[in-house]
Structures are given as structure tokens and as C-alpha cells.
């Protein structure tokens, strides 16, 4: 799923559900991505659905990156993801820029 971008940055798009049905697989893919790259950019623009399992995974991946001194960014949050992050008030935890108006 992940593929190499430029200079140690890996681009990792997640498509479809980020729910209990998908999290086990996603976790298996995120672990090596964080281990092997300095900068990981997880694109959430095509996440159609996310539940608590998805949120947990996002948190765990972010913490893992912090622990390994890597940079892990979530980008392009879909509406489903934004809604959930807002519901949990985790926006400042992830610290990703989710408002894209500045480049309009």
C-alpha cells in the first residue's frame, strides 16, 4: 500500500473503511512503514468510514512515530475522519493541519 516518495518520505494512502474490519491489516502495514522511513505521510482523503478502532490506530501510529523520532503526518482528512477527530477532541493531539483554506 505504501510507496516511496521523495527523500525518505513514504506516502501511505488509506482507502475505504478505517474500522474494526480494516484496522488489523492496516496496523500490519503501518508498523514497517514507520520502521523503515523517516517521514510518513498518511493520506486520509479516501477514508469513507472510521470508528473507535480506527481512532485508536491513528493514536498508536502517531505515538509510535514520536517514540521512534519519526515524523508521521495525517493529511487530507476526509469528512468522516474530521468529524470523528472533532468528536473526540483529538485535533490538537494529532496536531495535523486540517484546514486547507490558506492555499485557496
Amino acid at each position: 500500500m505504501g510507496r516511496n516518495g521523495t527523500a525518505g518520505v513514504v506516502y501511505f494512502p488509506i482507502e475505504g473503511e478505517m474500522t474494526i474490519y480494516a484496522v488489523s491489516n492496516l496496523r500490519e502495514q503501518i508498523i514497517p512503514a514507520v520502521a523503515e522511513h523517516e517521514e510518513i505521510e498518511i493520506d486520509l482523503s479516501r477514508v469513507t468510514e472510521i470508528d473507535a478502532a480506527g481512532v485508536q490506530l491513528m493514536v498508536a501510529a502517531k505515538l509510535e512515530a514520536i517514540l521512534r523520532s519519526k515524523t508521521l503526518r495525517y493529511v487530507g482528512h476526509s469528512k468522516a475522519v474530521l468529524d470523528i477527530i472533532d468528536l473526540c477532541d483529538l485535533g490538537s493531539f494529532f496536531g495535523d493541519q486540517v484546514v486547507l483554506h490558506q492555499n485557496d
Binding site: I20, V23, S24, L26, R27, I30, I31, V34, A52, A53, V55, Q56, L57, V59, A60, A61, L63, E64, L67
Partner: peptide, 14 residues
Amino acid sequence: IPPLKEMDAETCYL
């Protein structure tokens, strides 16, 4: 939530 490598993604930790 345990570390990514130890967590069971289907278990609820929240």
C-alpha cells in the same frame, strides 16, 4: 493504548 507493535487493533482501549 499499548504501543503499536503490541496492541491488538480490535481490542478497545479507550
